[in-house]
């Protein structure tokens, strides 16, 4: 269920400041992890939205990931809404994982279980 893809990222000066509200250094932007799981909760909140995603680990046990997204205003611009995700919904996401190894990351892409992108520009 969890797949890692490494890629090289060019880091510009002060690029860490490009993350809304806080440094982006907490996420490893050189790594992309693909998760398939079930939405427990979609927090459409400021200063960030979060997907609480339940994912089965390699041992088949449920683990909950905290996945950070942009603020609601930005997501609305990108066609996301409070109702875009509902508890129990199966989705796939690509994330940059937390550097500290916690079950969390920054959502780069999200799609429905059958591969349709979630959200469309407003």
């Amino acid at each position: 269920m969890i797949r890692k893809i490494g890629f090289a990222a060019a880091l510009a000066v002060v690029s860490a400041g490009a993350q809304a509200h806080h440094s982006g250094a907490m996420f490893d932007s050189t790594q992309t992890v693909t998760l398939a799981g079930t939405v427990r909760e979609f927090q459409f909140t400021n200063p960030h939205c979060y997907i609480q995603l339940v994912v089965k680990n390699a041992q088949g046990q449920d683990e909950e990931w905290s996945l950070e997204m942009a603020a609601p205003m930005h997501l609305l611009r990108l066609g996301w809404h409070k109702s875009s995700l509902k508890p129990g919904e199966r989705i796939n996401v690509k994330i940059h994982p937390l550097r500290d190894g916690s079950k969390g990351g920054q959502v780069e892409q999200a799609s429905t279980a059958d591969g349709k992108p979630i959200g469309s520009p407003a």
Binding site: H22, S23, E41, N46, P47, S66, E68, G79, D100, P121
Partner: peptide
């Protein structure tokens, strides 16, 4: 900004970004 018809302000109502050691991480909900 797309077809946005209103401005919604940021707050820190659910700021789960917390310091841990010399970096930040995401706090549990």
């Amino acid at each position: 900004a797309g077809k946005l018809d209103r401005l919604i302000h940021d707050t820190f109502e659910n700021d789960r970004t917390v310091a841990e050691g010399d970096t930040l991480t995401i706090a549990a909900p």
